[in-house]
């Protein structure tokens, strides 16, 4: 099955500077697709191109087979989006805001509005003015307006920006529910890895306008090496022993870090105790996704410069 969203060699040049450099990937139905990259990598620009807010210099984006450039209305009909903050008309009530956006897309009736309001848990406050809403409520109203016209694709730019932990969790559960129950394709962007890890099925890593890689979240994580840290005294002696055992070890924060397999630990411990090295602790150190991410982007940067 081909993806519901297809990017084909999308390039954006502004004043001679290439902001987005021939980006190509697909997003399938029923998956949460993450857009990962440092600030200024072009995440928001790409999202804006997907919804037709800004044009592209070359390439094309197709949503459900319709080009966003030549068939804007057909393409965008299938998209619900929040671009950056969900900015609403503050002088209108939440409900009036939804009516406003419902009128812009055809075939949205009152029942649908009520259904969406219930879905995002805003029923109690929907007739209050938006200026009295908390940030979390505005986010939820934003999701509501994006879901009004039953889109196939939901695009959320930094959906958890400014939310408290409870709000983030709530948002995450919503998104999971939507993809599982309605088979939506959800595209989210973020620079927070922990976020992405919990939310996404696949992630695309973007750097300096180029696609570094598209991976499933499992693949991304298994690329992470495990290290074992030994808290020992004296360190110098232990290091020498590691060397004789031909294990690559280095001085870590609290002791010695080395990359060995789990099964090798007992033999190392035996050797250390027999040599009268005192062991205070042994622990596994998993490189965080953050480090992994930095690793990937740095490798890339090096190869770019070479």
């Amino acid at each position: 099955m081909t993806g519901i969203v297809q990017l084909q060699n999308v390039t954006k040049t502004i004043k001679g500077k290439t902001i987005i450099d021939s980006l190509s990937f697909e997003v399938k139905k029923g998956e949460v697709f993450g857009f990962l990259g440092p600030n200024g990598a072009g995440k928001t620009t790409t999202i804006r191109m997907m919804v037709g807010l800004i044009g592209m210099t070359s390439g094309d984006i197709k949503i459900g087979g319709h080009s966003i450039q030549s068939n804007f209305e057909q393409a965008v009909r299938q998209v619900g989006a929040i671009v950056e903050n969900p900015e609403m008309y503050k002088f209108l009530t939440g409900y009036e805001n939804l009516i406003h956006f419902a009128r812009l897309s055809n075939q949205v009736n009152k029942e649908k509005i009520d259904e969406v309001v219930k879905l995002v848990n805003l029923s109690d406050r929907i007739h209050d003015k938006v200026k009295n809403y908390s940030l979390g409520m505005r986010q939820r109203l934003g999701v509501a307006q994006a879901l009004l016209h039953e889109p196939e694709v939901l695009i959320l730019d930094e959906p958890t920006n400014g939310l408290d932990p409870a709000g983030i969790r709530e948002m995450r559960d919503h998104l999971k529910k939507l993809t599982r129950e309605k088979g939506l394709a959800v595209i989210v962007s973020s620079h927070l890895l922990s976020e992405m890890e919990m939310m996404c099925d696949r992630i695309a890593i973007l750097q300096k306008g180029k696609l570094v890689d598209v991976q499933t979240i499992q693949d991304f994580k298994t690329g992470v090496d495990q290290e074992i840290e030994f808290d020992v005294v004296p360190i110098e002696k232990a290091l020498a022993i590691f060397q004789t055992m031909s294990i690559l070890a280095r001085r870590g924060e609290t002791g010695i870090t080395c990359s060995i397999k789990k099964v090798e630990i007992p033999s190392v411990v035996k050797r250390l105790t027999s040599e009268n090295v005192e062991i205070f602790g042994i622990k596994e150190v998993t490189k965080s996704l953050e480090e992994r991410f930095l690793e990937i982007t740095e490798e890339r940067e090096v190869s770019l410069h070479v």
Binding site: G52, E73, R77, V83, E84, E87, M88, L104, S105, Q145
Partner: peptide, 14 residues
């Protein structure tokens, strides 16, 4: 100014 232009222009309306 309100930022609502972003929500206004991503509807199936030219």
């Amino acid at each position: 100014n309100w930022g609502t232009i972003k929500l206004l222009l991503i509807r199936p309306t030219s």
